[in-house]
Nucleic acid binder design. Structure first.
Lengths: 160, 160
DNA sequence: CATGTTAGTTAGCCAATCAAAGCAATATGG
DNA sequence: CCATATTGCTTTGATTGGCTAACTAACATG
């Protein structure tokens, strides 16, 4: 089997692993991976607008509305009309939201981080280079790519 | 930014690229990526059973039924009771099915293959090693990982 | 033969997503 | 200053993919 095949298989395994994890999380915890992603985006700046989320996630505003609805129902975020522009709605973290985000289990990413950290320096470097290479091969445009694996820990500052 | 972050970002970009592509395909062509995946599995051996598909895709049999329903409705595959074991249903490719699979646009994988092939030998080797490494880091069990990127060309023989 | 196992379908549910339409609020060009 | 965009968001109504649970049919086996 040639290398192209081997790498495609590996890629597929990676995709598959995250997909399965996502489902698993959806069942075990209250929020699904997608909802958690929204929560993360809100968390990055303490508050945001629906528009912002929709742009970041590359999803329609209608979808954002429904996702935010679910988070609001669980009291993880709150909606509030902006005072400066009343067409806008500010979506803000609640105390529960912060808690959820900090308590969220994160097996997949953690597994990755743990193993990655255990690697030799040269191997880490090689991996980083390779992953970036592949990413560039696959995507053309600039996309939202905060350092999370479908779900993961929040970095409030990272805005590449 | 440390290497862990950089690699997680790259991973996310990869995930994102395939996800966006999948949606795009769903709109432009008749079959969605998942349906296409089913079609590919059937194509590998000319015919299969629902069970086989469900195992390969790691999805319930009920889901397979509904996916196959859609393909049958579009006449891309056909159902036929197995003569050897009449509990089984053979799902077989139709002429249209073959056509669909061979005409299917495949920008993502093609982009990958093209760029990969253009790489120097040592770089290809490095990439393969890295991807496999990451895949192993993320998934534990053995999974279906035929050489496709959500959708892609068929290899009837490849059974790793 | 009775009971169990296996393959598949049906029914009923949920999450995520979209497009289209609607409703406010702001912006803007006469 | 008002009529007409434009913008931001929600509602409505669909579709897809996914699940579990219940059911039917066929095979397997003690």
């Amino acid at each position: 089997m040639d290398r192209v095949d081997v790498s495609l298989i590996a890629l597929r395994r990676i995709l598959r692993a995250t997909e399965l994890f996502s489902r698993e999380l959806a069942q075990s915890s209250g929020v699904t991976a997608v909802q958690f992603r929204v929560l993360q985006i809100v968390a990055e700046k303490e508050q945001t607008t629906a528009k912002e989320i929709s742009l970041r996630m590359r999803v329609s505003q209608a979808t954002v509305t429904s996702l935010v609805d679910k988070l609001v129902r669980q009291k993880l975020v709150s909606r509030e009309k902006s005072s400066t522009d009343r067409r806008q709605t500010n979506i803000a973290m609640t105390e529960e939201g912060w808690q959820t985000i900090s308590n969220a289990p994160d097996p997949l990413q953690q597994r990755f981080v743990r193993k990655f950290s255990a690697m030799e320096d040269w191997e880490q470097a090689m991996l980083v280079a390779s992953l970036e290479r592949v990413a560039t091969m696959l995507d053309a445009e600039d996309i939202d790519a905060s350092p999370v694996l479908d779900t993961g820990d929040i970095r409030r500052v990272t805005e590449i």
